[in-house]
């Protein structure tokens, strides 16, 4: 059984419709790469899963439970519930808390009571993934550099004991070397029976690291990654 199954998803903001009747399913233990140019709906797809778009329609089944449905208002009203049911999102840009310390930022990611109790251990394992954070725990998150902020944001998502991790544009605005390291670290994390979706513009970053790659073009899923990215040749190894 797939861990996440989207059927007939449409979503958008106000009069703008971004996703058009989209189907997608994610299997347990799978690392899925979602590539596509700017403005083709990658972020909207991830936000739709957690209910953060302006409106949405269509079914989203997560671990056999329906979390989607038609919704015309109430942005983010269901998000906390969805997130608590086991989906962690590292949103685009940094939705970190600039006035809190790095430690508090990470702790805020441990939102289930089980993960809150084991937050020290979880913090250590996040630091294992992102060693630079170890020295910065006391620092205010607002004073970090872009790469460090992104690490905090992704690390915060890893603090929860979620089944599904959604990582949105880990490389956005980062130097190539740093984003390479970040994505490599992401792809080495043990997700067990869970799954991870990484949305990314930069195809070579994901190539060979994820189990499956899908292209997004104009709000629809294209199996052919090259089509979504225009002239970039499709990768042979990344395809199922």
């Amino acid at each position: 059984m797939s861990i996440l199954k989207l059927t007939g998803i449409s979503a958008g903001y106000g009069p703008v419709r971004v996703l058009h009747d989209l189907d997608l399913s994610v299997e347990p233990g799978e690392r899925l790469g979602l590539v596509g140019l700017n403005g083709h709906g990658k972020t909207t797809l991830l936000s739709t899963i957690v209910g953060l778009t302006g409106w949405q329609d269509g079914s989203i089944v997560f671990e056999g439970k329906e979390i989607g449905g038609r919704r015309t208002h109430g942005v983010g009203r269901k998000t906390p519930g969805i997130v608590r049911s086991g989906i962690a999102l590292a949103p685009q840009g940094d939705a970190i808390f600039p006035g809190l310390s790095v430690k508090d930022n990470l702790d805020s990611g441990a939102y289930t009571s089980a993960s809150w109790r084991s937050r020290k251990r979880r913090r250590d394992s996040v630091i294992n993934v992102f060693p630079p954070l170890g020295k910065l725990l006391k620092q205010t998150a607002g004073t970090l550099s872009g790469g460090e902020r992104r690490m905090v944001s992704v690390g915060r998502a890893l603090m929860s004991d979620s089944k599904l991790y959604l990582v949105d544009e880990p490389s956005l605005g980062l130097a190539p070397k740093i984003s390479m390291g970040l994505v490599a670290a992401l792809c080495e994390i043990d997700i067990g029976e869970g799954a991870m979706i990484i949305a990314e513009q930069n195809l070579p970053l994901l190539e060979g690291r994820v189990d499956r790659m899908l292209g997004m073009h104009a709000g629809e899923i294209k199996l052919d990654v090259g089509e979504a990215l225009g002239d970039v040749p499709p990768s042979a190894g990344g395809m199922h």
Binding site: S10, G12, G14, P15, R17, W55, D57, T72
Partner: peptide, 10 residues
């Protein structure tokens, strides 16, 4: 082609 909630805006 459009979602119903979109239709009033057109």
């Amino acid at each position: 082609e459009y979602l119903p909630q979109q239709a009033p805006d057109i």
